[in-house]
Design a protein around this nucleic acid. Structure first.
Length: 109
DNA sequence: TACTATCGGCGTCACTCAAT
DNA sequence: ATTGAGTGACGCCGATAGTA
């Protein structure tokens, strides 16, 4: 698991699978906005607003996919850890029973 | 076969948090 | 204060399984 310990330690409410990664590159086909100074008419402003919204939605779409992918991976990781711990627990219980048998005094009833 | 319940994935919105 | 990324919550949709 690639989880930064510092992040999780600093923010208690942060899910452990969350990784605050640096900003990633834009998906292919994304064109950066024109500078605000180059806009004039209300028509142009409206188009710019629409374009910005679509860009935001597209980025959020990709972010959500990535977030879900990481979450699935995290859950899978937890499940395999549970499996390992269950085996370990079972072994310890068996060992305990063995030691009890060895140590307990015999009672003939 | 039509209907229903359940599940997984998706897109979107609203919010938080860190960086600037 | 603003901005961008990450994520929880919600609703929708298609696939699949179970049932009358």
């Amino acid at each position: 698991m690639a989880v930064t310990g510092d992040d999780t330690a600093a923010t208690g409410d942060m899910p452990t699978y969350q990784i605050r990664a640096p900003a990633t590159a834009l998906p292919q086909g994304v064109v950066m906005a024109a500078s605000p100074g180059s806009l004039h008419s209300p028509q142009q402003l409206a188009e710019e607003a629409t374009r910005k919204r679509e860009l935001r939605l597209m980025k959020n779409r990709e972010a959500a996919k990535e977030c879900r992918r990481r979450k699935k991976e995290y859950v899978k990781c937890l499940e395999s850890r549970v499996a390992v711990l269950e085996v370990q627990n079972k072994k310890l219980i068996e060992e305990l029973e063995t030691l009890k048998d060895i140590c307990s005094p015999k009672t003939d009833v």
